[in-house]
Design a protein around this nucleic acid. Structure first.
Lengths: 152, 152
DNA sequence: CAGGATCCAGTAGGATACTG
DNA sequence: CAGTATCCTACTGGATCCTG
């Protein structure tokens, strides 16, 4: 049992939450949310699967089942999916609901906190999709230059 | 309900760059920018070191030297710093300028593309610093619950 | 269906030493 | 000062098998 209360730690941290400090908890939080799977899961749960109308309906935020998520996030292993969902649940970003149907049904849904993070994380996804072409061009230019140290 | 088939939708999505597809280049780009060091470096270069007025002046976007960066990003190894800066330069997000002074001076600066990404990435840093307290509380609640499977 | 448990490869990333 | 090069560990993350 720990003797340091949440209040104490929060008090302390409130003084300087600075992601630039390696010791700051917010630094670790940044590391957690700066993650490919976190971004994709959050976007998926927010109805961000733009072209993926899994259920064929609108794309508003709605709960998704485990299997739906694993199909949407192409290439994710179930280990990563489960692991990431757990950490998101632990951090209070998503809520997990178990329905006792014949084969058990588990759905994941964004919490209010999760929705607030989605606001910050969707632009990232958007940016990647928008500027990837430019980036690819830049890489080519850079690589070409690198292979030509002196003028021929 | 649309009449487009799954195949059609996938075809379409491929052209549009969809981060949900494992094969899409934008997916890899998302993975690159969803990175702790990338976020911190970009924020630092955008003058985002809130409490860290290294040179004691204003916090507007300005070029930073290698050593300044390594001091601002507490805990970064020079390997990670160099490596991340290289990839950012290659992607055209930062520009590297070498000035032939006595000890050589190298400065890094955001490009226009880099600045556009900063817009998307700063909210993430902001979110981490703002909501870390809530997250810590959520974690405690979650862990307490986990260690108490049945009601005492 | 929704995961827990294991095993294992690849690599991210740190420490150290050396250079222009 | 601003790196490059090398070694080495630790963790990420995939594949596989198993369970309620």
């Amino acid at each position: 049992m720990t003797t340091t209360t949440a209040a104490q730690r929060r008090e302390e941290a409130k003084l300087q939450f600075d992601v630039f400090l390696a010791t700051c908890p917010s630094r670790q939080l940044l590391d957690r949310i700066s993650n490919k799977w976190v971004t994709l899961i959050l976007c998926a749960l927010s109805g961000g699967g733009p072209q993926h109308h899994e259920a064929g309906d609108g794309d508003g935020p709605r709960p998704l089942r485990y299997s739906q998520l694993s199909r949407m996030l192409a290439g994710v292993s179930q280990k990563m999916l489960t692991q990431t969902l757990r950490s998101l649940e632990r951090d209070g970003l998503v809520s997990r609901t178990v329905t006792a149907t014949v084969p058990v049904t588990v759905t994941y849904e964004l919490t209010d906190l999760g929705r607030s993070l989605v606001e910050a994380v969707r632009p990232l996804k958007q940016w990647a999709e928008t500027h990837i072409a430019t980036v690819l061009t830049n890489r080519e230019a850079y690589d070409a230059q690198a292979s030509r140290p002196s003028v021929p």
